[in-house]
């Protein structure tokens, strides 16, 4: 009796393998057979408001171009789930996979396997290894972020006076790169402004608030606090508000509009800087479809993408353009 169940399970397994036929891979990478293209969009995590906004832009592009869009990803950031979803899509026979990669090296194997089946790979937001994709849709370069932050700060301060920076850690690679660009812009364009201190907050809002309070006490002539990691923006704003210096000491930083909406409306925070996340989704799908149709090729210098117009391509990076400045006037138009 026990043997019978063991055998039946083997039988079931044999049944799956027996009706094996070759994968229908002809649909992949073939856009000229009149079938609708299917584009699969992979977020780092599905529930994140940031990626939900990416999806919104992607849906708009998909509707414009008449392609089918699959949006699926792990519920929480989970590299194992990302791989499984990609492998499932390869089987399903999508034409393009556009991925925001949680694990740069880990997902490259699955993406390369997809490429071998003729599926085009585009990455966005976070790249994989360059050999595992055709293009990376880059939401912002370090130079773009650094310059926009410095220019906005200068505008808020009337191009003169003291300002301070709050960063996540003094060693984080991306933030070091941003700071370098901020300081370069400062030296080149704003001789009357002075960076008095740079403090780390370990990516914690509470610590950012404490650091900002210390800075406010130490530098009474301070005109502006620049927060370059997202928890530090509301942290610095809270410190300025509690010190009763709202509007006197300006606050700006890199973060999500949704996390800063109230401070911006109350006039504590003057500017929140980020790329237009919806446009990132839109551009990603535009690039994905163009790559599948062959109108976007390696070596191209620009890429014309629907309503966004011509986008610069650096090597294999499609650049979304300069970051966007969210202010009291426009912040209510953005939900992420």
């Amino acid at each position: 009796m026990k043997r019978s169940t063991f055998l039946t399970s083997l039988l079931a397994f044999a049944l799956v393998t027996a009706c094996d036929k070759k994968s229908d891979s002809s649909s992949a990478g073939n856009s000229s057979d009149g079938k609708k293209l299917t584009i699969a969009l992979l977020p780092k995590s599905k529930g994140n408001q940031y990626f939900a906004t990416v999806e919104k832009g992607a849906r708009a592009a998909a509707a414009e171009l008449g392609v089918e869009l699959i949006y699926d990803g792990p519920t929480n950031t989970d590299p194992a789930k990302q791989n499984e979803i990609v492998e499932g899509w390869v089987n399903y026979g999508v034409n393009v996979i556009a991925a925001a990669c949680e694990n740069r090296e880990g997902i490259s194997g699955a993406l390369k396997a997809a490429q071998e089946k003729g599926i085009k790979i585009v990455t966005y937001d976070s790249d994989t290894t360059p050999d595992a994709r055709s293009f990376f849709v880059n939401q912002a370069t370090a130079q773009g972020i650094g310059e926009t932050l410095m220019d906005t700060a200068a505008k808020l301060c009337g191009e003169e006076g003291e300002f301070a920076i709050i960063t996540a850690t003094l060693t984080a690679a991306n933030m070091t790169e941003w700071r370098k660009n901020i300081e370069a812009r400062l030296a080149a364009k704003y001789p009357k402004m002075k960076l008095v201190t740079t403090k780390p907050c370990d990516d914690q809002k509470d610590k950012a608030q404490a650091e900002a309070t210390n800075i406010l006490n130490a530098y009474p002539n301070l005109k502006c606090i620049m927060a370059i990691c997202s928890p530090a923006v509301p942290g610095a704003a809270e410190a300025v508000k509690q010190a009763g210096k709202a509007g006197v000491v300006k606050v700006l930083g890199l973060g999500l509009p949704s996390e800063n909406r109230q401070y911006v409306k109350d006039g504590v925070t003057q500017a929140v800087i980020l790329w237009k996340v919806e446009d990132l989704g839109y551009l990603t799908i535009q690039a994905a479809v163009a790559a599948a149709k062959g109108t976007l090729k390696t070596g191209d210098k620009t890429f014309t993408s629907g309503k966004l117009g011509a986008m610069e391509i650096q090597d294999t990076d499609i650049i979304l353009g300069k970051p966007f400045v969210f202010t009291k006037e426009n912040i209510d138009q953005f939900q992420f």
């Binding site: 036929k21 994968s23 089987n91 026979g93």
Partner: peptide, 13 residues
């Protein structure tokens, strides 16, 4: 399903 009875899918499972 699409491409369910394929060796690739069995390998995936």
């Amino acid at each position: 399903g699409r491409n369910f009875n394929t060796s690739d899918n069995v390998a995936n499972i």
